[in-house]
Simulated assay, not measured.
Amino acid sequence: MITKTNKIYIAGHKGMVGSAIWRALADQGYVNLIGFNSRELDLRDQGAVEAFFEAEKPDMVIDAAARVGGILANNDYPYQFLMENLLIQNNLIDGAHRHGTEKFIFLGSSCIYPKMAPQPLQEDSLLTGPLEPTNEWYAIAKITGVKACQAIRKQFGKDFVSLMPTNLYGSHDNFDLNTSHVLPAMIRKFHEAKVNDHSPVTLWGSGTPMREFLHVEDLAEAVVFAVENRLPEHLYNVGTGEDLSIKALALLIQSKVGHQGEILWDSSKPDGTPRKLMDVTKMKEAGWKASISLEEGIASTYDWFLHNIENIKEVKL
């Protein structure tokens, strides 16, 4: 049983997901949270991670650290997306297990499921078919993490659980047009076009794929729920259970940003998976569901973007 004074290590605590989890736990009164940036602790370095576990001995680990990006980044840097994620999660999972950490929350992505899996995506669709080629490198790494946590749970009875969120967005997101996901990229594109006399905005693909989006603060609340409860199974989808087309998303963001120009669709660019809707029945039955609407979430994310636009850096690869 994790108490408010147990030592909880949040890997990736400076990122969008990790910082939201930190804030959510702190708001609930957890007083022994620890985190290190990549300069202080390189999670790809097995020796450094081993030394960390020797010194800190956390009671719980939340793995929100990963090499992430959209279709373009996954396509251009397949080796980094595969190998760096394997190194990060293997070092954390194995280090936590060997040093007596009893509770571990592993965060992944809906891209672990087969490209043509039945919709909505259920947890038992894992490993039943080929992955989406544009992000298979990241997906394979995350599948390995899920199975490692399942193996520890099965063999040693530890509370190692995997949460698979759908597409995330929110404050502290990545707005770099070369590496960001679709929603923050659209916010930036529409904003820049608005301040450039409402110039046309060109978006990738046909606009027909269906996507589901979860505000990062909702994910953080799901993690708090998993901290405070021993979930009976090893893998849970985390999402809203609702989706919309990319074209509908574009129109919604365009409206929230106030862009009045034309939207152009570049159908020579890949669409990615036709649909990715999560079946969130298991989390609902466990006692948790999302609460932030997409309209509310986009509005608050654009507001955060406007207040932090001078500090948004381009990501170097």
Rank of each mutant, 00 (worst) to 15 (best):
M16W: 02
E242A: 15
I187F: 09
S245M: 11
W304T: 02
I263S: 11
M186Y: 04
P78V: 01
S38K: 10
K316V: 13
T208Q: 12
I140G: 14
A55Q: 12
N32T: 07
H234D: 11
W22N: 04
S171L: 03
A24V: 03
W288I: 02
A299I: 13
A51M: 04
L219S: 07
L131F: 02
S293T: 09
V238G: 00
A148Q: 15
W265M: 13
I292W: 02
I105H: 06
G12T: 01
A193H: 12
G95R: 04
M164T: 09
I187H: 11
D197Y: 14
L168K: 00
V161M: 00
N75Q: 15
L177K: 08
S268A: 10
A185L: 15
A250H: 09
A55P: 10
L249F: 02
G297S: 00
L82N: 14
N229I: 05
I10C: 07
W288E: 02
M186I: 12
T273Y: 05
I88C: 05
K289R: 02
R188M: 11
G261I: 04
N174I: 06
F160I: 15
A96V: 05
L251Y: 11
G258A: 04
P120G: 06
V17R: 01
V227K: 06
E40T: 08
G170K: 07
D279S: 06
S125P: 07
V224S: 12
G129I: 03
Y77G: 13
S245T: 12
F160R: 08
R275E: 08
I10K: 10
K194I: 02
N74A: 01
T134F: 11
L249A: 00
R211F: 06
V68W: 13
L306R: 09
R188K: 15
K4Q: 13
Y79V: 14
A148F: 06
G70M: 05
I152R: 01
G205E: 08
D266S: 03
I88H: 05
K284D: 04
A299G: 04
A248S: 14
A250C: 09
K14V: 13
M186T: 13
E132K: 03
W288S: 04
L203S: 12
H13P: 11
V161E: 03
S255G: 13
D159S: 06
T240V: 13
Y77R: 15
I10E: 10
L82D: 11
Q155I: 05
K57S: 15
E40Q: 15
A141R: 04
A24P: 00
V201Q: 04
P209Q: 03
D76A: 12
N75H: 12
L183M: 10
T5D: 08
F213T: 08
H97G: 09
L87T: 08
F53D: 11
L163D: 05
D42G: 08
M164H: 14
